[in-house]
Amino acid sequence: MTEGVTKVDRVTATPSALAFIAELQAEYGPLMFHQSGGCCDGSSPMCYAVGDFHIGASDILLGEVGGAKVYIGKAQGEAWAHTQLILDVVPGRGGMFSLDNGREKRFLSRARVFSDAELEALNVLPER
């Protein structure tokens, strides 16, 4: 591991997102997220009960937040390889098939650019 960088998570969640995940888990059981490059400029992750969405061969597991696995489509994962995905909650309606729909709040993906040390720790430092 790179000096000064102990652990690098590709995905994290805000406290409000973790609370919303726990609320949905209490109602639906185990959850998972999928971040695709589809509608809404790709900023709305879709939340599903485990088993309600089938992960494809080109989907990438980014990590886990609040006990829910978070996947991203390969093309978007490659485009966002230099960023950490941060799940957050904002007012609004979720995606039509997402479990956050109709609750007047929805998940939103934010991003933070990794430092060079973090990218090196992830082994994705771009050549200059």
Rank of each mutant, 00 (worst) to 15 (best):
T2M: 13
K7I: 11
K7Y: 04
V8W: 00
D9A: 08
V11P: 01
V11L: 03
V11G: 01
T12D: 02
P15I: 12
P15T: 12
P15E: 13
P15S: 14
S16K: 11
A17K: 01
L18S: 09
A19N: 09
A19W: 02
F20G: 00
I21W: 01
A22T: 10
E23D: 11
L24H: 06
Q25A: 13
Q25H: 00
A26P: 09
Y28M: 04
G29E: 04
L31F: 00
M32I: 07
M32W: 02
H34R: 11
H34P: 06
S36Q: 11
G37S: 13
G37A: 09
G37I: 08
G37P: 00
G38V: 14
C39M: 08
C40P: 04
C40H: 07
G42K: 00
S44Q: 11
S44K: 08
P45V: 06
M46I: 08
C47L: 12
Y48E: 03
A49L: 09
G51W: 00
G51P: 00
G56R: 11
A57K: 12
A57Y: 10
S58F: 01
S58Y: 02
D59T: 07
D59E: 14
L61P: 04
G63N: 11
G63D: 08
E64T: 09
E64V: 07
G66C: 06
G66R: 00
G67K: 03
A68R: 03
A68L: 12
A68S: 15
A68H: 03
K69L: 14
V70F: 10
V70R: 00
I72L: 02
I72V: 14
G73E: 08
K74T: 06
A75F: 05
Q76V: 14
Q76A: 08
G77H: 06
G77A: 12
W80G: 09
A81K: 14
A81M: 13
A81P: 04
H82E: 11
T83N: 13
Q84W: 00
L87P: 01
D88E: 08
D88R: 02
V89I: 05
V89Y: 01
V89E: 02
V90G: 12
V90N: 07
V90Y: 10
P91W: 01
G92M: 07
R93H: 11
G94T: 07
G95D: 07
M96Q: 13
M96E: 14
M96F: 13
F97K: 15
F97T: 15
S98W: 01
S98L: 01
D100F: 04
G102F: 03
G102D: 01
R103Y: 04
R103V: 10
R103E: 07
R103A: 07
E104T: 13
K105M: 13
K105H: 11
K105A: 09
R106Q: 09
R106P: 05
R106T: 15
S109D: 06
S109P: 02
S109C: 15
R110Q: 13
A111F: 06
R112T: 09
V113G: 08
F114I: 14
F114T: 11
S115C: 03
S115T: 15
S115M: 03
D116N: 15
D116Q: 10
A117F: 05
E118S: 05
E120Q: 14
A121K: 07
A121Q: 12
L122H: 04
L122V: 07
V124S: 05
V124T: 05
L125D: 08
E127M: 07
R128A: 15
R128M: 10
R128Y: 08
